[in-house]
Design a binder for these strands. Structure first.
Lengths: 147, 147
DNA sequence: ATGGATGCAAACTGTTTGCACTACT
DNA sequence: AGTAGTGCAAACAGTTTGCATCCAT
């Protein structure tokens, strides 16, 4: 499989961090990271919890949340909040930055537009601030096709 | 006061809507709308609830949420969700569309950049969709001033 | 062996819901 | 009079927390 290489890289990142910060290399952390990178796109804590429960490696909710926080901090995972108030997550290593288009409240597409960087640069200059991240969502619906 | 005029206009909008949809013109609805338009910027349901409680017109949480939904539907109020998972609201009539810059996790500034419309237009064409709304937030921090 | 991490369940927070009562039309 | 809207409190959902136990170091 070609993405074993990605898997190796992200595990290495986690590994390095844990070593550096003298945190424990628990099997749970690696198992969770692996499951997340097997997801294709957005999931929430509960989905991950259930996926883990079905897998050979059952893990508690507390650990799910703890590990998600850790991985977000490491930039291996991105945390979103769309319109409702539950957090959504997605793997982020090796995926270039993108924004989201949400159609009919449930379908999520991704896009990338360089002009967002230009806006960011302007804002930084105008307000004399340093921007660390942004979130841009478009909400819309598919056009009805005329018969 | 110069914004009595604004107050009159928005009450008229609510009025028309209630009449049209044959909904009741309860004093609670007008009182809540008025309090909201006395706020200067972002608040959450609880802040509004407390503000109402202190005013002459105490109102229940259920009514707060019901009325907020109604006003959002009428575009008199905008509903946001920033990084944590509680909804924030702001009055929106007469205020041209703007986006938000959140500094050091607590200060909220507003800005307006026409390029966001250009991005929107592109996305609509590329994906053949109709975009109804967007949300754009920049998260950053103030630059340290050198002494 | 030590204490950081986990599992479990209870607590918490913001929001929603059910139902009896109120008051707008 | 009829019923939409309100108030209250209980229910709910997602997340966080406290504490006993476990296991990586």
């Amino acid at each position: 499989m070609s993405n074993n290489k990605v898997m190796d890289q992200i595990k290495k990142i986690l590994d390095n961090h844990l070593e550096l910060k003298k945190q424990r290399k628990t099997p749970e952390r690696y198992a969770i990271l692996e499951e997340i990178y097997n997801f294709n796109h957005h999931f929430d804590a509960d989905e991950l919890y259930n996926k883990m429960k079905k897998s050979k490696f059952s893990v508690s909710r507390a650990t799910i949340y703890n590990t998600l926080d850790l991985l977000v901090e490491l930039d291996l995972v991105t945390k979103h909040i769309f319109k409702n108030n539950t957090f959504k997550y997605e793997k982020s290593f090796g995926y270039r930055q993108h924004d989201h288009l949400i159609l009919d409240s449930d379908e999520i597409l991704e896009f990338c537009d360089p002009r967002i960087q230009l806006i960011k640069n302007s804002i930084e200059k105008i307000y004399d601030v340093e921007i660390e991240s942004h979130s841009l969502y478009f909400f819309g619906k598919k056009k009805k096709k005329l018969k």
